[in-house]
């Protein structure tokens, strides 16, 4: 029980940290400073809102007879405001295209690795290290 308590406290702290950075960013943009209490209030609201989102997502997934929450459920959670819904579907398309691209590259690379000798393999890893995901591509 106390373990669970500290776990949620740490997550709250993580949210608080990120919210403070967001406020700093927005504050620079509109020449405002945020008081500590205001930042704490925004963090607490975000934490509660996330709890509401999570329960919605779980219910949506269960309604679709799934146990895994997927992108469609998140889109459904963003339905209340049209512009937010549009933005979220745009982002989700972006995400799926990125994932597809990564998968395609990974496939290509494993093909190279099995067919080629040592030289093309070295070239492939050299080219891919700039992308930062060579580790899981090779794993």
């Amino acid at each position: 029980m106390s373990d669970e308590f500290s776990h949620s406290q740490r997550l709250k702290a993580a949210i608080h940290f990120t919210v403070a950075r967001f406020c700093e960013e927005v504050g620079q943009d509109c020449q405002k400073k945020y008081s500590k209490l205001a930042i704490a209030a925004i963090s607490e609201t975000t934490f509660k809102q996330c709890d509401i989102f999570a329960r919605d997502l779980e219910a949506f997934a269960r309604h679709a007879k799934r146990t895994t929450v997927n992108v469609e459920d998140v889109k459904l959670a963003a339905r209340r405001s049209t512009s937010l819904a549009n933005y979220i579907s745009e982002k989700s398309e972006e995400l799926t295209s990125i994932t597809k691209e990564q998968k395609g590259r990974r496939k290509k690379q494993t093909g190279k690795r099995t067919s080629g000798g040592s030289l093309p393999e070295a070239a492939a890893t050299g080219a891919d290290s700039s992308m930062g995901d060579d580790q899981d591509a090779l794993a």
């Binding site: 990120t18 975000t46 809102q49 997502l57 998140v74 933005y87």
Partner: peptide, 28 residues
């Protein structure tokens, strides 16, 4: 998200987590 799920069998896909992060960003 998993902290707030009632059922511990519920999981979240990777893309869904990234999309939720985006949504929370917009919220803040």
């Amino acid at each position: 998200l998993s902290l707030s799920f009632r059922d511990e069998k519920t999981k979240v896909s990777g893309d869904a987590v990234l999309l939720m992060a985006e949504m929370l960003k917009i919220f803040v």
